[in-house]
């Protein structure tokens, strides 16, 4: 079974419930790596909320592509990605990637691969709402560099 599931939704999700559901139907899996990205607030620049804009059709296609590439590259048994859009509060989950494989390294690599590509090549844009108003988050060079390790 090489299951790929990508869901883009506004609704909040429960990180634990998601991973429990994901692992339920993969008896061959010896390992599941889960990454959960959260809305964070920095002490020096606290935020009230995060608003995530996205390009729906393109986001779905791009993430499905990265998930398929991860399955092929690391021989994963299954992968599931849930990414939210809209307004969310500090501490809420934004994204969750779960990769299942026979052994641990492939699961770690699969989740890592999808996140690295998603960061720079999936059409989402973050806007932080703070005490002094809202501003768009700038892309980081570090994210661009992170995905390069997969093409070397």
């Amino acid at each position: 079974m090489m299951g790929i599931s990508v869901t883009i939704q506004a609704a909040i999700f429960d990180a634990g419930d998601l991973v429990n559901q994901f692992t339920r139907d993969i008896p061959e899996a010896g390992a599941v790596a889960t990454f959960t990205g959260l809305v964070r607030s920095k002490p020096e620049q606290p935020i009230k909320a995060l608003i995530l804009e996205h390009h729906p059709t393109m986001a779905q296609k791009q993430i499905e592509r990265f998930a398929q590439e991860a399955v092929d590259k690391f021989d994963l048994l299954a992968i599931q990605v849930v990414h939210r859009f809209g307004e969310m509060k500090v501490g809420e989950p934004i994204v969750q990637v779960m990769a299942a494989s026979s052994h641990r390294q492939a699961a770690f690599d699969g989740a890592n691969y999808v996140m690295d590509w998603l960061k720079t090549d999936a059409p989402f844009w973050k806007k932080e709402v703070g005490a002094d108003g809202a501003h768009w988050v700038e892309a980081r060079d570090k994210d661009e560099a992170a995905k390069d390790k997969w093409t070397k």
Partner: peptide, 8 residues
């Protein structure tokens, strides 16, 4: 047309 992406 859009700015560099900042998802995840």
């Amino acid at each position: 047309i859009f700015p560099p992406m900042t998802g995840g």
